[in-house]
């Protein structure tokens, strides 16, 4: 995973609530067995509408998605995170994220930034007024900045540290194999095995 400290780029406002992962990437694209190459699949159905915000050339090259509440609901497909990253997004800002999507994003280094409804709406207004405005997502300072708009966000210290170091979760857990083995020695013998 690439480390994330601070990112500055242009943003795109997605004024929709309850953006489920079936919209982010339809199931048809989940048949692929690779982890990359999902750029074309992102918001596949919505992009067929010329009026959809990602088809608005004023937002070309945006790297931060600013969406309505309950972003990433539904299916656990991590392909949703890969598709957003393959398209070029480094962070998603929303008033609320679905739990699994948030977890998947943090594994892959796509930063989910939770801000209050009114702040997200103000940010969307700001971007729509001036699509070229530069937005900074600063994980070090736990801040989002766009000109005079400055908002702090919460993220726990451990997750922040792991993202800033770009650390592999599995590698961290494998430091504790003795603890895992100890735990396994205490499991009751009647618990089921698949073999």
């Amino acid at each position: 995973m690439d480390a994330f400290t601070t990112h500055t780029g242009r943003a795109v406002p997605l004024r929709r609530n309850n953006v489920d992962t079936d919209q982010i990437i339809p199931a048809e694209y989940l048949k692929r067995v690779a982890r990359t190459g999902f750029h074309d699949a992102l918001f596949k159905a919505w992009r067929e509408d010329p009026a959809f915000v990602l088809n608005d050339h004023r937002y070309d090259g945006a790297t931060i998605l600013v969406a309505g509440p309950d972003f990433g609901t539904g299916s656990s497909r991590e392909h949703a995170v890969w598709a957003l990253q393959d398209y070029g997004f480094r962070a998603v800002i929303s008033p609320r994220f679905a739990d699994i999507f948030r977890g998947n994003s943090l594994k892959g280094g796509l930063l989910p930034v939770q801000l209050p409804d009114d702040v997200v709406a103000a940010l969307q207004d700001r971007i729509e007024r001036e699509p070229a405005v530069e937005v900074t997502v600063d994980l070090v300072e736990r801040q989002v900045r766009a000109d005079d708009l400055v908002a702090s966000f919460e993220i726990d210290d451990y997750t922040r540290w792991r993202l800033m170091e770009g650390l592999d979760d599995i590698g961290l857990t494998l430091r504790h194999t003795d603890d895992i083995a100890n735990y396994e020695s205490t499991r009751p013998g009647w618990m089921p095995v698949t073999t």
């Binding site: 998947n104 599995i170 895992i180």
Partner: peptide, 20 residues
């Protein structure tokens, strides 16, 4: 509970998950 593919790999490798 459902997990993403990175967590699938984590469980395959360690039979555990780090969770809040």
């Amino acid at each position: 509970f459902g997990i993403g593919t990175s967590e699938v790999e984590h469980v395959l490798a360690t039979q555990t998950l780090p969770l809040q």
